[in-house]
C-alpha cells in the first residue's frame, strides 16, 4: 500500500468516534489471542487496529468488525487499556455511513431466513 497517501482521515474518524488514541496500541496481540471469534474473522482484531494506524482503507472491507460480538474480552485483556470493541463499532459506523452494502437482498436465499433479518435489511436500505 502507498503509505504516503494513506487515508489519514479514516484514522482521525475512528479516533473521534471511538474516543480512543489508536496509536496507544503497541501491537502485543493479546486482544486477538483472547477473542472467541477469530475463526470467523478474515483478519485479526489487532490487525484491524494496525490498519487503522496505517490509514489503510481496506479495513472497511474486512469482515472482522462485523463478526465482532462486542463481548469485551479484548477490552478486559488489553494491557494498554484500549477499548477495542469501541474501535470496531467506530469502523462499523463509518462503513454504514458510507452506505456500503454487504448484503444484496435480491440475491439472498430467503427460504428459511427469519423474517426479522429481511426486515432489518430493508430498513437499512430505506435509512
Amino acid at each position: 500500500m502507498d503509505l504516503t497517501n494513506s487515508d489519514r482521515e479514516l484514522t482521525a474518524n475512528v479516533e473521534e468516534l471511538s474516543g480512543e488514541n489508536i496509536f496507544s496500541c503497541y501491537q502485543c496481540g493479546k486482544c486477538s489471542a483472547g477473542c472467541p471469534f477469530t475463526e470467523e474473522m478474515d483478519i485479526l482484531p489487532n490487525q484491524v487496529i494496525k490498519k487503522v494506524q496505517m490509514g489503510d482503507g481496506s479495513v472497511l472491507d474486512s469482515d472482522t468488525p462485523w463478526t465482532c460480538a462486542s463481548c469485551l474480552s479484548c477490552e478486559v485483556d488489553c494491557p494498554k487499556g484500549n477499548d477495542v470493541p469501541a474501535i470496531m463499532e467506530a469502523i462499523r459506523e463509518i462503513s454504514l455511513r458510507k452506505n456500503l452494502d454487504r448484503v444484496d437482498i435480491n440475491k439472498l436465499e430467503t427460504k428459511g431466513l427469519p423474517e426479522i433479518a429481511l426486515v432489518s435489511n430493508l430498513r437499512k436500505k430505506t435509512g
Binding site: M1, T4, Q27, K50, K51
Partner: peptide
C-alpha cells in the same frame, strides 16, 4: 513491509 497487517508498503 508491515508484518502485522501483512501489507507491503511504499513511502515517498
Amino acid at each position: 513491509l508491515d508484518e502485522i497487517s501483512g501489507e507491503r508498503v511504499e513511502i515517498d
